[in-house]
C-alpha cells in the first residue's frame, strides 16, 4: 500500500488552564514516516499534546503543522488523521465492518471502494472473518485490531495512538506491540504514540520524546535516550539507574564532574575493575539470582559517600564468583559509562 506520509511539527505549543499550564512551549519536529512516542508520567502533558494535534483541544499559544500546513484553526474532522483511543472507542451499535467503513463513508467513498478498502484494512490487522460481529462479541485484542483498522482504513498520513495498549493484559500487549510495529513497517505512516510505559516507548519508537510537568525533557533515539539521558528525571524515568551527587562522585573518583549529578546504570558496574576504572568499595547487600544475571546492592563505605546504596546487575559468570552478601567488594565502572546529568 503506497501512501503519502506527512511530517508534522509543534511550534512553541502551550496550553494553559487558568494559572496551571498543561503544556509549556512544546517545540518538536517529526519526520514523515517516523514513529515518535510521547512518553511521560500522568500529568506530563503528553495527552494534552495529542489532543491539540487531533483538534480536541485548542492550544493557548503556538501552532501545530501537519504536512507544513497550520492546523490550529481546523476542526478534528478536517485534519485527516487516524486515531486509536485508549479504550478503543468502537461504535457499539455498529458491526466491525461498519466501524471500519465509517471513515470511508464520511469521505463519501463509493460502495465498491469501501468494501475493498475495509477488506484490505481487516486483512492488515488479521481480522478478515469478523466483519459481521458487533464489538461486544470481540475479545480485547480483537477490539484493538478493529480500532487500528478503523484508524488506518482511510490511509491518513498521520496516525495517533493514545495509551492504546494499556487496556490489554500483558501477553496481548506484547503481541499488539509487535503488530503495531509490523503495521507501521507496512504502511510507513507517521505515528505519534502516547504512553507512560517506557518499555513500549523504547521497543516501538524511532524516537522518544520524554515530557514532564508539561515540558519536553529530551527527544532522541531509544538507545541514545537510555545511554545518554540529559537530566536526572530522564535517567530516573527511563530504565533504572544510580544517581550520585557531585560531591560524592568527585570524592569517589577524584575527577571533576561537569554537572550536579552522575548516573551509572546498574548493568555498567562489574566486579573486575580495570586500570582507569572508577573504583567503588562497599558491602554487598541483597543478592538476587535471576538466571542469566545477578542483581544486588552495594552499600558504599567510607567518607562522604558512606551509606549510599548502588544497584548493580552483572551477567552471571561461572568463573568469576560473585561475593556473598555481607562481604566487602570492590566494583568498577568505566569512565565512559558515567553520564553527567543536569537538574
Amino acid at each position: 500500500m503506497l501512501q503519502h506520509n506527512a511530517p508534522l511539527s509543534f511550534q512553541a505549543v502551550t496550553k494553559r488552564y487558568g494559572d496551571a499550564s498543561a503544556l509549556e512551549g512544546l517545540t518538536l519536529d517529526v519526520k514523515a514516516g517516523e514513529f515518535l512516542t510521547l512518553l511521560g508520567p500522568s500529568g506530563s502533558g503528553k495527552t494534552t499534546a495529542l489532543n491539540i494535534l487531533a483538534g480536541f483541544t485548542q492550544a493557548s499559544e503556538g501552532e501545530v503543522y501537519i504536512d507544513d500546513r497550520p492546523v490550529g484553526a481546523l476542526p478534528p474532522e478536517r485534519r485527516n488523521v487516524g486515531m486509536v483511543f485508549q479504550n478503543f472507542a468502537l461504535f457499539p451499535h455498529m458491526s466491525v465492518f461498519d466501524n471500519v467503513a465509517f471513515p470511508l463513508r464520511m469521505r463519501k467513498a463509493t460502495r465498491a471502494l469501501t468494501r475493498e478498502k475495509v477488506g484490505a484494512a481487516l486483512e492488515t490487522v488479521h481480522l478478515s472473518g469478523m466483519a459481521d460481529r458487533k464489538p461486544a462479541a470481540l475479545s480485547g485484542g480483537q477490539r484493538q485490531r478493529v480500532a487500528l483498522a478503523r484508524a488506518i482504513v482511510a490511509a491518513p498520513p498521520v496516525l495517533l495512538m493514545d495509551e492504546c495498549l494499556s487496556a490489554l493484559d500483558l501477553k496481548l500487549r506484547e503481541e499488539m506491540r509487535d503488530e503495531i510495529r509490523r503495521i507501521h513497517g507496512t504502511l510507513g505512516t507517521t505515528v505519534i504514540f502516547v504512553t507512560h510505559d517506557q518499555s513500549e516507548a523504547l521497543s516501538l519508537s524511532d524516537r522518544v520524546a520524554l515530557l514532564n510537568d508539561g515540558r519536553l525533557c529530551q527527544v532522541d533515539h531509544p538507545q541514545a535516550i537510555y545511554d545518554r539521558p540529559a537530566t536526572r528525571f530522564v535517567a530516573d524515568f527511563i530504565g533504572r539507574t544510580n544517581i550520585i551527587a557531585r560531591e560524592a562522585f568527585e570524592h569517589l573518583s577524584g575527577q571533576p564532574l561537569g554537572g550536579p549529578y552522575a548516573s551509572i546504570r546498574p548493568e555498567r558496574l562489574h566486579f573486575t575493575p580495570q586500570p582507569g576504572d572508577i573504583r567503588l568499595t562497599g558491602t554487598i547487600e541483597d543478592l538476587t539470582f535471576l538466571g542469566a544475571s545477578i542483581e544486588g546492592r552495594l552499600r558504599l563505605s567510607g567518607g562522604q559517600t558512606g551509606g549510599q546504596v548502588l544497584r548493580f546487575a552483572v551477567p552471571r559468570s561461572i568463573n568469576a564468583a560473585c561475593p556473598d552478601p555481607g562481604q566487602e567488594a570492590v566494583m568498577g565502572c568505566a569512565p565512559a559509562d558515567i553520564v553527567t546529568l543536569n537538574d
Binding site: A54, G55, F56, P75, P76, E77, R79, N80, V81, G82, M83, F85, Q86, N87, A89, L90, F91, H93, F102, P103, M106, R107, R150, A154, L160
Partner: peptide, 25 residues
C-alpha cells in the same frame, strides 16, 4: 463514552453528524 464522539470526529464527521452517528444510537 465521550471518546465515541471524538472518534467519529477524527473519522471525518462534523459535530452534528458525529453526535448522530456515535452518541445518539
Amino acid at each position: 463514552d465521550p471518546n465515541l464522539e471524538r472518534a467519529a470526529r477524527v473519522c471525518g464527521a462534523g459535530p452534528v453528524r458525529a453526535f448522530m452517528a456515535a452518541t445518539l444510537p
